[in-house]
Design a protein around this nucleic acid. Sequence first.
DNA 1: GCCGTTTTCGGCCCGACTGTTTTCAGTCG
Length: 555
Amino acid sequence: MRCRDAAHVLERYALLLELAGESPFKARAYSAAADALAALDRSLDDALDSGALSQIRGIGEGIVATLDELRRTGTIAHLAELEGQVPPGVVRLTELRGVGAKKARQLWLDCGITSIEQLEQACREHRIAACKGFSAKSEAALLDAIAFWRSTRGQLQRHKAWRLYDELRATLLDGGARDIVAAGQLRRGCETIDLLTLVAITESNTVALPEDFAPAGTRRYSSITRDVPIEILLATPDEAGTALFVATGDDEFLAAATGGSALPPLPDEADVFAHLHLPDIPAELREGTAIVERARRGEIPRLIAREDMRGMIHVHTTWSDGKNTLDEMVLAARELGFEYIVICDHSQSAAYAGGLTIDRVHQQRAEIDALASRVSGIAILHGIESDILADGSLDYPDDVLAEFDVVVASVHSHFALPRAEQTARILRALANPFTTILGHPTGRLLLRRDGYDVDIEAIIAEAARTGTVIEFNVNPYRLDLDWRYHRRACSEGVRFAIDPDAHSTDGIRELFDGISVARRGELTPTDVVNTMSLEQFRAFVAAQRERKQNLQVSA
DNA sequence: GCCGTTTTCGGCCCGACTGTTTTCAGTCG
């Protein structure tokens, strides 16, 4: 068992402890331990036997004993007991927005609710308002939350879809497949996945499938029993190219590309494009009919690719709310071949995230300088993710801001401002001479909450006027700014930074997956500042500051 | 359950927001 898997178990244990009415502090201790554990990229056996776990703050004797039980028996007896005690539907109640462990427990014990369906029924019949602590208003809020929950069911963020893919891949390879390839929405770079499509390449045209898969056509199998519907297509190696092509594009694209004729079995996708007399169309663009026409006219741009990325920008460490240390994050970026990394921990107003006071900013700089002198092969820049305060100002005085190599300015509070006020606030931050990059411009969390209400056109225009970079934050919950705005912004002269907003070394690796989504937006290497060399990037930031200062003077 | 002592108990990230209450509790980031 990997530490990451053990972390998931502890997280669930923490939730059940709270639902069962045990000390919320105990639950929090388990939850914090889960966080710490998730950052360890090693096996649980190794972490326990080396004594590394007991060294970690927040993991003491009790939790080490629990983890030892988990690795010996594959489970935690007390957790199993709680699973028997708390109905599974009550655990699911916490998936609703605005329902935490306390409210779920209250709904269960005071109102007798043990599933989301029962809760919905009870709200409609106004039986919840009769319970202590609830009113007609809370019934309406709960119904809203249930509607939102329902609208996001059967969909996954990309990292969760990849996790499911990894599980299936291992099973299918064990079951005799020669190779497994992700196709469909995942390969096209869709930001959320409502159908997971895999091609299983097998010599014999058969593979041992998990029990929940049933036939759904010629050599096609599907399952609807997991978090998202899944389909698996079987193909022999000599027809793998055709199978992958068919499993990747959407229906409109396939009809336009093939003209409705059946494709011969071909081993490689390149053979399929040659057969169709079409240039290679990147998987991320294979939707709709227009792209086929563009391809025929030779209008497919050279899209950004992972090899183009030279700078890793916007990374958190244990100095604020990151799970891995500065050293670990730097070494992980170097291992992936990055030439420079820009550390951007939270600023002082982000107290919940351990934001840096001015003193700690200076301490962190000293540590970065010390590390830079020890580590070769990667440059370390000192940036900050500065909160944009309610009035649009940044979170430090100018003399402190001026010391950073890069300032990512982001909204983390006051999400509910009216549109005009929210927009004005962000425009003010864009005009700030020290704002290098506008972080996650809408604050959306995919399948969790919408972004704050802002005028994106106005933000793009002001970014263009001031020369401020807009972030494409590729944290799999964010993927913000939405790729649908990318071309328009670029046509106005805006540049993007493709940033992982990584809070762990795993998050750093997710950067590459996010590039798939950037390709949907047709970002090219010249649109993206991370493709610059270190010297180019430093010169870019210096020129940007000068330009912005001049704009301020003339204003 | 963890931590750090004022060293074996008492407090535990903090501010905004919302909704139910008249002074606070729960949720969220």
